[in-house]
Amino acid sequence: MAVDLHKFANPARFLRITSAIFPWAAIVTVLLLAVGLYLALFASPEDYQQGATVRIMFVHVPAAWMAMSIYVMMAISSATGLIWKHPVADLSAKAAAPIGACFTFLALVTGSLWGQPMWGTFWVWDARLTSMLILFFLYLGYMAIWGSFDDQSKAGKAAAILVLIGAINVPIIKFSVDWWNTLHQPASVATMDGPKIHSSILTPLLVMGLAYTSLFLTIFIIRVKAEILGRRLRILRLAHVED
C-alpha cells in the first residue's frame, strides 16, 4: 500500500489535519444542504402518483445510504484498529457510531412517514424496513458495549470484535430478510444499467447524498477531536492527582 497508515496514527498529526479540513467541511455542508434542500423540496417536480410526498425520499434515501456506509466505515476502522493497533482507529469507529445510529433512525422515521400516505400504514414488516431496524439494533449494541467497559482500550477491542462479526452478518441478514418478505421497491439508482430514475429527481438525490456525507464528516471531526482531547484530559487529571 502506497499510503503509510502509521503516519495518521499519531493523534497530534491527526488533529492538525482534521482541524485544517474542518472549516471547509462545515462550509461545504451548509452550501450543499441549502442547495440540496432547495432542489429537493422546491425545484424537483411532484410525482404524478405520489404528489409532494415523493420529496420525503430526498431526505430518506441518502440517510439510508449513510446508515449502511457508516457501518462499513466502522468495520474497516475497527479492523485497522485490531490489526495495526492504530490508536485513532478505535476512536474513529466509536465517534462514528452515534452518527450512524441517528441516520438509521432518520431513515426509519422518514420511511414510516412516507409509508403512511403511500402504503396506508406507518409500519410494515417489509424487508428493507426490517433490515434497517436490525441495523439500528446493531448500532445500539455497539454503543452499549463501549459503555459497559471501564477500560477504554479493552472496550475498543471488544467493540471491534463485535462490529466485525456484525459486518459479516449484515449481508446475510439483508439477504435473509429480502427472502422473507419484499414490498419495498427494488434498487433503482445503483443498478447495472445505470440509474433508472429521471435526472430531475436524481440530481437533488445525489446532492443530498453529498450533503449528508459532508455533514457526517463535519460531525465526525468534532466527535473524534472530542474523544482525543477527552483522553488527554483524563491523563492530565490523573497526573494532577498523583502530584
Binding site: 439494533f137 445500539l140 449494541g141 452499549a144 458495549i145 462479526i165 456484525g166 452478518n169 441478514i173 430478510v177
Partner: peptide, 10 residues
C-alpha cells in the same frame, strides 16, 4: 441479549 439476538435473525 442486545448483542446476540439481532445476529440470530437469519
Amino acid at each position: 441479549s442486545l448483542l446476540v439476538l439481532p445476529l440470530y435473525i437469519p
